[in-house]
Simulated assay, not measured.
Amino acid sequence: MNPVLAIALKALVVIALGAIGTFLGSPLVRLVLRRADAPRPRGAAGPDGGDEASPGIQAASAQLRGGHWIGLLERLAVYASILSGFSGGIAVVLAVKGLARYPELKATTSGAAERFIIGTFASVLFASACAGLAWWLTGLW
């Protein structure tokens, strides 16, 4: 294969999967959060055995504003960290995100904390999967 074509194809794969990982992660995270906040049937016991209602993972979105933009930047940073071989970048991203949100999470309900944790895990896993796929595809040629 022509070296210039190979480089162009690798760049296209990296850019395409970076865009997919960054932008399609938002609907995926929202889907995961909806599934995690699924209503229990009437009379069903909660995880601690009680009948109380869920604190509302979806309702906590008003308390954690800016989550969409933070998620986009988080996925892009995780994707770039993995592809560049800087695995410590993932720790930096998660530490900055956790420290920045700490005051909000401490002052709110457990629904906000659950939303933060579930959303972060889903977001990072999706970005990591896209980076792994890009790494694998670019290594094929």
Rank of each mutant, 00 (worst) to 15 (best):
M1R: 04
V4Q: 12
A8K: 08
L9F: 12
V13K: 02
I15P: 07
I15Q: 11
A16D: 03
L17F: 14
A19P: 14
T22F: 01
F23V: 07
F23Y: 11
L24T: 11
L24M: 08
S26C: 03
L28V: 00
R30V: 07
R30F: 07
L31A: 11
L33D: 01
L33I: 01
R35E: 10
R35G: 15
A36H: 06
A36L: 09
D37V: 04
D37A: 05
A38R: 14
A38W: 10
P39Q: 00
P41G: 02
R42K: 01
R42N: 00
A44Y: 04
A45M: 10
G46L: 05
G46Y: 05
P47H: 09
P47T: 07
P47S: 15
G49F: 05
G49S: 06
E52P: 06
A53G: 11
A53I: 12
P55R: 02
P55E: 03
I57R: 04
I57P: 02
I57T: 12
A59G: 13
A60T: 03
A62K: 03
L64C: 08
R65E: 02
R65I: 00
G67N: 00
H68I: 09
H68C: 07
W69K: 09
I70F: 02
I70G: 07
G71F: 03
L73D: 01
R75L: 14
A77C: 10
V78C: 14
A80G: 09
A80K: 10
S81G: 08
S81R: 12
I82L: 10
I82T: 09
F86W: 05
S87C: 08
S87Q: 15
G89Q: 07
I90Y: 10
V92T: 14
V93F: 07
L94V: 03
L94P: 01
V96R: 06
V96E: 08
V96Y: 08
K97V: 02
L99Q: 10
E104G: 08
E104L: 15
L105P: 00
L105E: 01
L105W: 02
K106C: 01
K106W: 05
A107T: 06
A107M: 05
A107W: 03
S110H: 14
G111M: 09
A113W: 11
A113V: 15
A113T: 12
E114M: 11
T120C: 03
A122H: 03
A122D: 04
A122Q: 04
V124Q: 11
F126D: 04
A127F: 13
A127C: 13
A129Q: 05
C130H: 01
C130T: 00
G132I: 01
W135H: 14
W136L: 12
L137D: 04
L137F: 11
T138C: 08
